[in-house]
Design a protein around this nucleic acid. Sequence first.
DNA 1: AAGATAGGTGACCATTTGGTCACATGTCAA
DNA 2: TTGACATGTGACCAAATGGTCACCTATCTT
Lengths: 106, 106
Amino acid sequence: MTDDDRVFKALADPTRRFLLDLLFARDGRTLTELESELEMTRFGVMKHLKVLEEAALVVARKRGREKVHFLNPVPIRLIHDRWIDKFTEQHAAALADLKRELEESP
Amino acid sequence: MTDDDRVFKALADPTRRFLLDLLFARDGRTLTELESELEMTRFGVMKHLKVLEEAALVVARKRGREKVHFLNPVPIRLIHDRWIDKFTEQHAAALADLKRELEESP
DNA sequence: AAGATAGGTGACCATTTGGTCACATGTCAA
DNA sequence: TTGACATGTGACCAAATGGTCACCTATCTT
């Protein structure tokens, strides 16, 4: 699996996007702290965090018996550069084309 | 399912991202034309196109017995505005925070 | 040392997803 | 008008995914 595949798959789940929201609002949270914000057992949250870590969207480090989690914006920035710009660069042109095509009578 | 959920789920599959690439390179292709670029039966491609249409990433219209497909950049633009910016706005700050946190000795 | 606390692993299960196929409909062209 | 062509539908199957749980290790606190 490629890096961008891992990132897109990680972003595909609403729970994982919510976890990113939580970490965006405040970084450096433990598993237990994140779990308390979700209607899900600790194990479910662990799995989601693992997927996010494997996509490098979250970075974690041990601090004693705790593990603190941080948001890593770099992969999203890379998508932005590789994917989004690709479409939005020519945004106006594409929209105009589409509009013209759709207005051609069949 | 919310709109952005549909878009993220649609983008999660590499075949669907490839279809978007194809349509980005050249719009207005038929199912058969798209199928010929993929190692997959027509039916698989149809399912993927359906997912992309339901996410509004692709717009299609019938032309005789054909169905021509167009890339719609708007949903990606919306993600860009709602999601990506959210992280990249404070990109430098977040990176600096992360760096500082990671450098604190445990 | 011993209980409480934080996190990790592997098995397990239900649901979703990606893909194929048999069959069917609508449209073009000779 | 008949055959070829382009697309559509529903059943079906294997694999991936999201979630829980029993059990385990490591660390902190008293």
